[in-house]
Amino acid sequence: MARDYDDDRVVVIEKDSNNGVGLLLLGLALGAGAALLFAPASGRETRERISREARRAARRAKDVTDEFGDKLAGQVERARSGVDERLGRARNAVNSRVDAVNEAVSASRDAAREARADIERAVANSKRAYADGRRAYSERASRSGMSGEPGPMADDRAPRGGAEGHADGSADDA
């Protein structure tokens, strides 16, 4: 199944992956080799020149790789320090939020304790007032000759409504 690409437009994008160092070394080697081959010299002189150029090319290659290594090490160090700085800021932000949450939890616990104490005081006061009211009712009933059993107080009765009285709790005397 053959494909016809005449009508299709194909775009190829290649990213340069820093092959400059390799191309530089290749160019140096080819240039040195061409210069030695085309130079009029004897075999011994040519071998010495090739050896000398090879050593010079090796030194240049070492210098280039050392420079590249230094640049790469500097970039790595800058990247590492940037990551460390961002990580430190993130840790500080998280710690400050944790502290804020802990303070809020502590404050809410204190408020809950205070509210509970207030409720317990209010319940105790209500119980005391209820007991005082029953005691007063019992004393009043015993003075008036009623039985000693405390009965419902006027406030304990539910308001009447419907056929027996109005919605506002008042009754018809008719």
Rank of each mutant, 00 (worst) to 15 (best):
K71Y: 07
G69I: 05
A61K: 02
D118S: 09
R89M: 07
F68M: 14
A124I: 04
A111D: 00
A93V: 07
S108Q: 10
T65N: 10
R80Q: 14
A90C: 06
A107I: 05
A117F: 00
A104M: 05
D63L: 01
T65F: 03
A73C: 03
V76S: 12
D110G: 14
E67R: 08
G82H: 00
L87E: 14
A73H: 02
S96D: 12
D70L: 14
E120C: 00
K62T: 07
S81I: 02
D99M: 08
G74H: 09
R89K: 13
V101I: 13
V76Y: 03
R89A: 12
A117D: 13
R109T: 13
G88D: 14
F68E: 15
A122D: 04
R121N: 06
N102R: 11
A112N: 10
D118Q: 08
V83W: 03
G69W: 01
A124Q: 04
A112G: 10
D99W: 04
F68H: 10
R91E: 06
R116D: 12
I119H: 04
A79F: 02
D63F: 03
A90I: 00
V98W: 03
E67S: 15
N95V: 08
R86A: 14
V64P: 00
D70A: 15
D70I: 11
N102V: 06
L87C: 11
I119Q: 10
E67F: 06
V105A: 11
S96M: 06
N92V: 08
F68Y: 11
A61E: 05
D110S: 15
D70E: 15
V98F: 05
D118E: 11
D84T: 01
A111L: 01
A122H: 04
G74L: 09
D99K: 09
A112L: 08
A90E: 02
D66V: 00
V101M: 12
A79W: 05
R121H: 02
E114A: 15
A100K: 06
S106C: 09
A73M: 02
N92Y: 01
A93P: 03
A104G: 05
R109C: 13
E114M: 08
A117T: 11
A117Q: 08
R78I: 06
R116F: 00
V101Q: 13
N92L: 13
K71S: 12
D70C: 10
A117L: 06
E77H: 01
D118Y: 01
K62P: 09
A117C: 09
T65H: 04
R121S: 09
N92T: 15
A100T: 09
R121Q: 07
S96C: 04
E120I: 05
K71D: 14
R89P: 06
A107G: 11
Q75K: 13
G88A: 15
R116A: 14
A115E: 13
A122I: 02
A100N: 09
R97N: 12
A122Q: 02
E77T: 05
V76W: 00
N95K: 08
G74N: 12
V83N: 11
G69V: 07
T65D: 12
A90V: 02
I119A: 13
D84V: 00
V76H: 10
E77C: 00
V98G: 04
S81Q: 12
A115L: 04
A117M: 06
D66L: 05
V94K: 11
A90D: 08
D99S: 14
N95P: 00
D99P: 07
D110W: 00
T65W: 07
R78L: 01
